[in-house]
Design a protein around this nucleic acid. Structure first.
Length: 506
DNA sequence: GCGATCAGCT
DNA sequence: CACAGCTGATCGC
């Protein structure tokens, strides 16, 4: 097919993508790259504009990268002269994409090779400052700038913050009008379809009742949450069933189960050119995914990868092992103290299996407050819905916000149920309850106990472990990998790059 | 008063 | 560490 297609000659089978080669992540770049790279959490609030400086090397490298550019999408070109945001984003996008395209072969960059790039252009690329021509002519569409500007003292003292944030390149699918989990950048120039991988705040942030920037595509479950929790106008919601191919703006789009939270999807895009993109959103890779026909039978050219735990120090057991461990601990605690209230901490959605497993093993109902119950019922999971109860006094198994899993809070909670219970056993499921020495040994987990309150941190992860990531990448053998998490730190990027290179060697 | 955003915090 | 938020202050309407 297409890897060798002439119009996409920059994509070489077996090449590895990354932000920049080692030398490129020079000190002068660090402060700004943090902004671009802040991924999953989009933590670009920590950007340090003031410390930013350009070096000669950086200029020449950028230029050489620009020369191996992707074709710009026509819709983005159209935006030029349309006011500032369009050309700004187009440039940003084009260049940004290129930084991700450095293959090993392209790593040697000759400084001698530089024409004189204008600094203004580079400021513009990075959103460092607004070149004068961007201010006029005024945009056709009236954009509410205040919405995107930093507020408060910092903003007024530094005009650099008075600009909309640019959508990072890794949230755009090249040569399409698509964006992924990019709702906090206002209307994105050239974007005509906004994809949402799952309903977690750091991904849907910016989506509000007043959303009107374009159609939102997501799974039916996520769509229901957008309606229930955010009151999003149904006009903009476009549910896509899992495992079903849709054609959207001439691109074949298929959503696949991501094994993350309920409603989470991998996004599979096949362009008219034959190029294939897989955006994992947040996911936990599993053997099952290797049986997805779409992944097993087609080459993925570019993989946008959830690299949350892309470090060998992150080892954790299978979900199943953690669930049986939680059940085991619960049973033995109840044996010692029958008047134990079992509490499971949870965010908005995700980790439902932890309390569902306890519920089933003990044959008890699950108490959750009104709003959580409404959310959980919207999943349409009979197993879960039928096991929920409205009265806290009706069951010894409660779901609480994970922020409540502190001794002080739990002590108060127990006080309120003192007539029923004498102790609290709480589970805090999280992926980063890892311990260097602990590894996969669940039985080595030491709970923290204060009086009659016991809290277990359990490594129930809804992201891939390092090993799972490696196996997924080795299975998929993509031409290029674009990490989407932990890219704010240059050392991290370099480390991940070398892992990818290793994995794709074969 | 209400909804939305942001820095700081966990 | 970094997940997926939460809290309180601030702002615009």
């Amino acid at each position: 097919m297409s890897a060798s297609d002439a119009s996409h000659a920059t994509i070489k089978p077996g090449s590895i993508c990354f932000f920049f080669k080692n030398g490129f992540a020079a000190a002068s770049f660090h402060s700004k790259m943090s902004t671009i790279g802040a991924a999953g959490g989009d933590d670009d609030s920590k950007e340090e504009w003031n410390e930013f400086e350009w070096s000669e090397d950086a200029l020449s490298i950028i230029e050489s990268i620009e020369e191996q550019s992707y074709q710009m999408h026509p819709s983005i070109k159209q935006e030029e002269g349309d006011g500032g945001e369009g050309s700004f984003a187009a440039e940003f996008y084009r260049c940004g994409t290129e930084w991700s395209c450095l293959s090993p072969a392209a790593e040697v960059v000759e400084p001698s090779h530089s024409r004189n790039l204008k600094q203004a252009n580079l400021w513009q690329m990075w959103g460092q400052d607004k070149p004068s021509y961007l201010s006029s002519p005024p945009p056709k569409k009236k954009v509410k700038l205040s919405q995107f500007c930093s507020q408060g003292k910092a903003a007024s003292s530094s005009p650099k913050h008075n600009r909309p944030r640019a959508c990072p390149f890794y949230k755009r699918i090249p040569d399409t009008g698509f964006s992924v989990d990019a709702f906090r950048y206002g209307p994105i120039p050239g974007c005509s379809a906004y994809f949402l991988t799952h309903f977690h705040y750091d991904h849907y942030g910016g989506l509000t009742k007043g959303w009107s920037h374009g159609p939102v595509f997501c799974t039916p479950l996520t769509a229901r949450l957008l309606t229930i929790c955010l009151s999003l106008d149904s006009l903009y919601i476009h549910p896509l069933e899992l495992d079903k191919e849709y054609v959207i703006q001439e691109v074949k789009v298929t959503l696949l189960e991501a094994n993350h939270c309920p409603g989470a999807a991998l996004l599979h895009f096949r362009l008219p050119t034959g190029l294939c993109y897989l955006h994992t959103g947040d996911f936990r890779a599993s053997k099952l995914m290797q049986a997805y026909p779409l992944l097993a039978n087609n080459r993925v050219n570019v993989l946008y990868l959830d690299t949350t735990y892309c470090n060998p120090k992150y080892k954790f057991p299978s979900k199943e092992d953690v669930l049986s461990y939680v059940v085991r601990v619960t049973k033995s605690s109840l044996k010692k103290q029958p008047k134990t209230l079992v509490v499971v901490g949870a965010y908005s959605i995700g980790k439902e299996s932890v309390y569902l497993a306890i519920s089933k093993a003990l044959g008890v109902k699950i108490y959750a407050n009104n709003s959580r119950r409404r959310t959980l019922k919207s999943f349409g999971w009979p197993d879960l819905s039928t096991n929920l109860c409205t009265q806290a006094t009706d069951t010894c198994l409660h779901v609480l916000p994970i922020s409540s899993l502190r001794f002080e809070t739990l002590r108060d909670y127990l006080k309120n149920h003192a007539n029923q219970y004498a102790a609290v056993l709480a589970f805090r499921p999280t992926g980063w309850t890892y311990s260097e020495g602990l590894g996969r040994e669940l039985d080595l987990i030491k709970p923290s106990t204060r009086g009659n309150i016991t809290i277990y941190g359990v490594p129930y992860s809804e992201h891939s472990s390092f090993t799972e990531l490696r196996e997924f990448v080795e299975f998929l053998k993509p031409d290029k990998i674009i990490p989407t998490v932990n890219v704010g730190n240059p050392d991290n990027r370099d480390k991940m790059q070398s892992y990818f290179r290793e994995w794709l060697k074969g």
